[in-house]
């Protein structure tokens, strides 16, 4: 059994007269160390899926088991503790606390876990080194570029060494250069690398929602969602460029174009 197991997820929004099925019998399994991308057109249910499997939201029906824990049984303080200790989150708008310095933002989850100061310092230094933030620790988020801010958000998510990292459109606010830089960092984290020579103890499993093909091309596996259901799955088997082409084609296929649909149309 994988690190994440979701079975027959259904999520319905709205009132009785206008119900919207955001997830329609969706099932998913993720193994430890994977870098999974979730793609799909707007309104396909990507973010809903991420919210449901990351404890932020609850499914209308279905079951999610994360790190061997049935999420239905987690409530209140237990749920908060589970999030703090096991999960990491990166959001599109970074969601950093502007009143805190970079160092304080990164250290916040450790402070919430009541870790000793020496350990906090050690973890902050380690994660800052991974994400190249050593020089920025005394600054405030608003004094930095968006790319740097997203790296801080990643550092905050990784500082507790979560078993699984959830990222919702993490490159949505970044320019291409900052996005590439950030994704390379994510890739390294997923592979358990600090630099070309140094490694962290455990590789981090990453589940990332994105609508951008270039961003998705850094993943090892991509799930395509359409109308709340799994439409297709792509697994990276060759270089990133080829994988990127495959993603583009799949996106076109979902939209009604693409080589796959063209072949079907010819037949």
């Amino acid at each position: 059994m994988g690190i994440l197991n979701a079975q027959h997820l259904i999520k319905v929004f709205g009132h009785r007269l206008s119900l919207t099925k955001a997830l329609n019998d969706f099932s998913l399994e993720v193994q430890a160390g994977e870098f999974v991308g979730i793609m799909g057109p707007s309104g396909a249910g990507k973010s809903t899926l991420l919210n449901v499997i990351s404890t932020i939201d609850r499914p209308t029906s279905g079951r999610v088991t994360l790190l061997g824990q049935d999420l239905r049984k987690l409530k209140g303080k237990q749920l908060a503790q589970f999030r703090r200790e096991k999960l990491g989150f990166i959001f599109q708008d970074f969601n950093l606390v502007d009143a805190l310095t970079v160092k304080e933002n990164i250290a916040l989850p450790l402070s919430l876990n009541h870790q000793p100061p020496a350990q906090i310092k050690q973890h902050v230094q380690a994660v800052s080194q991974i994400l190249g933030l050593q020089e920025l620790l005394t600054y405030y988020p608003l004094e930095l570029s968006v790319g740097q801010r997203q790296r801080i958000a990643a550092a905050r998510a990784l500082v507790t060494e979560p078993a699984i990292l959830f990222a919702d459109e993490p490159t949505g606010s970044l320019d291409s250069r900052a996005a590439t830089d950030f994704l390379q960092h994510l890739q390294r984290i997923n592979q358990g690398q600090i630099s070309d020579t140094a490694h962290i103890s455990t590789p981090t499993t990453i589940i990332m929602v994105t609508h951008d093909a270039f961003t998705a091309s850094f993943c090892k596996r991509i799930l395509f969602i359409k109308d709340g259901s799994l439409f297709a799955e792509l697994i990276r088997s060759s270089d990133r460029q080829t994988f990127f082409d495959q993603i583009i084609d799949m996106q076109a296929t979902i939209g009604g174009g693409g080589r796959m649909n063209a072949r079907q149309a010819r037949n």
Binding site: G76, A80, L87, F91, V97, P109
Partner: peptide
């Protein structure tokens, strides 16, 4: 408001 949402997401209990 956003800070509170973020804090809740990263595991701060509402009571805290």
């Amino acid at each position: 408001r956003t800070d509170f949402m973020t804090l809740e997401k990263i595991g701060v209990p509402t009571a805290d």
